[in-house]
Design a protein around this nucleic acid. Sequence first.
DNA 1: CGGAACACCTAA
DNA 2: TGAGTTAGGTGTTCCG
Length: 1149
Amino acid sequence: MMSTSRKRTLDDDLYDESPKHLRGGGGGGYGDDGDDLFNDDDLFEDNLVDHDGPPEPADDVEEDIAFGDITDAHRSRWTRPAVPSSVWKTSENDLNLQWLDIDMIGGSPLAANPNKNKKVLGASSGTVPIIRLYGVNETGNSVAVFIHGFTAYGYFALPRGYEVDGSDGNLGKIRSILEENLRAKLGSQFDKGDNTSNGETPMACLGVTCLSNKQSIMGYDPSHTKFLKVYVAMPGMIPKLKTIMEEGITLPGITNANGQEVRESMIFQPYECNVPYVMRYMIDRDVTGASWLSLPKGTYHLRKNESEKGTHCQIEADICFNEIIPRKPEGEWAKVAPLRILSFDIECQGRKGYFPEAEHDPVIQIANSLSVYGESKGPIVQNVFTLGGCLPIVGAQVISSNTEEDMLLKWRTFLHASDADIFTGYNVQNFDIPYLLDRAAALWKKKDSKLRIFTQWGRVKNCQTRKRETMFQSSAYGRRTNTETTIEGRVIFDMLPYMQRNHKLSSYSLNSVCAEFLSQQKEDVHHSIISDLQNGSDADRHRLAVYCLKDAILPQRLMDKLSVLINYVEMARVTGVPVSFLISRGQQIKVFSMILRKCRDVNLLVPTLKKSGSGGDEGYEGATVLDPIKSYYEIPIATLDFASLYPSIMQAYNLCYSTMLSPQEAAKTDPSMFKRSENGHNFVHSNVKKGILPIILEELLAARKRAKKDMKNAPTEFEKAVQNGRQLALKVSANSVYGFTGAGVGQLPCVPIASSVTSYGRFLLEKTKSYVEEHYTQAHGYEHNAQVVYGDTDSVMVKFGTKTVADTFPLAIEAAKKCSDLFPNPIELEFEKVYYPYLLMNKKRYAGLMWTQIEKYDYMDTKGLETVRRDNCALVREVIQTSLDKIIIERNVPGAIEYVKSQIADLLQNKMDISRLVITKSLNKGAEYALGLGGKAEDYKVKQAHVELAARMRKRDPGSAPQMGDRVPYVIITAAKGAANFEKAEDPIYVLENNIPIDSKWYLTNQLSNPLTRIFEPIIDNVEKSLLQGDHTRKIFIPTPTAKKGSLMMFAHKKATCMGCKASIGVDEGNLCKYCLPKEAEIYLGKLAVLKEAELRYAHLWSEAQRIHGTLHTDIMCTGDGCACQFYRRKKVQADIRLAQEQVDRFGR
DNA sequence: CGGAACACCTAA
DNA sequence: TGAGTTAGGTGTTCCG
Ligand SMILES: Nc1ccn([C@H]2C[C@H](O)[C@@H](COP(=O)(O)OP(=O)(O)OP(=O)(O)O)O2)c(=O)n1
């Protein structure tokens, strides 16, 4: 880097009269308060020479190893469009990009501002933070922007009434003291980073200003209105500075409320010290996630020589932070750039019966699908890198290698050339990526340059991709690996966690997810035969490659079909956070980001609170759930529902940190200025001071409204569902604003706000109920007295007494309007739907035929019942669902009874497909101890079936056993009388393989009985007798208890036959009779062939999810078409394999 | 044997 | 600075 000729002095002249105005040297000086600090006309000699012309051709440096079979034809398909020559005319053209990823590094200060009339802000020596932002321009070129001069800082409040001498001299003294303290805390860390090449001594604390135009967000009349703003050299120093300030320090020139100088140590409350540096930049410069940015002509420099460039991006710019123009995502800037998405999948050659381990097992294929956002013609490249030859695949490039090393390196070349913005796949984060990295480490020596080259997946030159394992101290059983990987400049967007987060499914295997959303199954290759295919012919490997390719294509299709990208882009723009935060973080960061942005607009500051030490802060009261009048209603029940209840409460009553009054303050305040909430907290009206949270909610709800409109206009059912997901996500974000205030462990908890919201909610619900019941009465001229039969949080279910849907609608519409009129804006009660008929079973449990229009019902809506719970087996879900359908839709109670009886008979006679008996439950905290993954014994208090099973499976095969967070599938098997439930659970696969009998009686008494009783109870007499004890329960098939494990094996020993001619032979005689013995080899090979063939047949029927252990099993048994015959076919083939295997095994003895 | 405690999942 | 909230039903285990 070039060094500057500028000279900056740091200690003097930090301030002029206006205290917030920082000038010259030390400070940051950025548009904190809207003014640029270096706005005097200093001109600098310009060290940078901009020639407006294209760069020299990039000679591909050390990075790429040439492979003859990667041709120019390949490359031209892979690479991004060429950079238009206009881009290089930096003084004539703006550079526009949509950014996706952002990070930060320490580096040297920029020597000179490319905008020749301006200085570079920030520190001019030492290590400074540089923000790297990665994105794509309209043409589809990759762009990296190095953003310079933005300095990290924090605020520190003076206690109420205190003043600080804001003279340059005094603030300079404060800076020196802080400098000293910081250095003491930093120790040698800081000195090492010294860069004194320009003769200046780098500082830790760059400057101090004092501000009186800002105030704390906490309260209507906050105690903190005066702040020191302290700039530091590197973001990492902020926590240390914060510690110094909150532990107490003596600073000069500070006077207390009585005007006396404070000479002893004082504590300063930190503000906004918990804002990550890159977010600090985004907030201060109004840069929102995934938005468009413009680098105005003449303000930026493009790095043209390869030697000058730090990344592999096509375009690389340097600019000062305050030059970039953020574009509001409206009009032309609402678009999405042609982003490149790379979806990939690897196959490994595991040893039989073991989960692949990178230490030993090679990667044999890597399939890729590269697509461009907005490109309607589908993926632009599909290819497979194979180890060993492979027949051509139509529509895909096949690139074969003789060694695994070559294959990996070729793939790396592809990675580099295709230069994707987004990396996707299925479980790539926890399997493919760590596996490739581990494998590389196993293949190459640490110093091997090939290792270094291979692991460069990111956009930053010479930057190796490393995984960080959030390792858990695992004692006996080994690795619980939650891997995190950063690939500089690219966003890793794994579709598996996305699905787990956004869709409630009982299996998340790629196969079942695709069946659900793409109506598409993939070709199945069971992992046990991958090895055989790999060792086979080019045609075998072709089959594997096709399968592998499909696994690479499907995640990308999923992403496309579910509009994942555009929805995340919208969310990033609305909430302001980078897309990567949406993937890896929760709701808090979104709300926090929005709060900080809005606060900045109105000069409020957010305190950095200490973690509430003692942990268990008391909870608060939530919503009311009205006692249900349980019944089967055969007349219409109308549902009235508040629209976005909690958000609208916060808006209507102006609930916010910044509007709250303490009881003492309230006593001194004009009562017309504020309102006391239902539970005794006081908030001023919005005309006095508008709260931050209501403003945020307004925007979120506006975005939700747009989503709802799009949902209404969606052309297809599927698109409607996608828009519904988007709408729901925005609703959750809005509700999370409320949740944020009540979050015990959070950045800014404020229970008074949260509890005020819920208390208003309780009040509104009660009010609505009583209004409806008091107004819609015969006394008021209505035909019936209305009754609220149920209500939960924000809804009332009203029985108006009307007999038809058509008669109910007008009453419900009117009631909704009249209630809305009772409440302040924007609180609104909506008439949403009528249930007719309506089965109300309990709080949070009901079903009903839903009508949103008079002409026709929509569908049967079910809440909380077994049918919507994933911890029930399919049998229960289906039986209950069908019964409800028959009762509620068909109104055919006898039919329902018949159906149930036949199902019970089937169950008891063991005719039930085992897949319908599989129960799945997720493995949560507390199970850690049982699995031997650490955790404390006292956290595992109650033994559970699925946990005990998972622990046993772990002992059988740690590699394929369920992991924490996975759903564990199990069935209940027969066991000794009185055995506890948790002892009777078994892995369905194990049950199948070993022919273990299922306890079908248990399914009747413990799974079906209660739910059925509850449903039929209000409808028929004596459920016990007629459903659960009839003749249909007499014929019980008791499976032979002898059919225990290894039965075939034992059989073979007792009564052996010659495997060649089936003649009887003695048990100890070996496998063949004396006549067949000479042909031993031939017979063995013949048996081996039978085994192979059986395996192939089996694999063909076997749906698999190689990497998602926990959900593997349900898939095997459930094809989605629910065909029992498929199941039996599989079972038969499975038995064939076992027989064949055992025959082969006999030769081994 | 009965009820408290716990675990899971869902409604809102 | 990792983590929005509370209410509630249901089934199982644990403990006296
Ligand atoms: N995930 C959720 C869902 C709901 N709620 C709270 C806040 C909501 O305002 C209230 C009512 O929930 P609804 O599900 O009825 O949703 P809304 O009323 O917010 O939206 P809608 O307009 O869809 O009714 O419950 C919540 O805190 N978190």
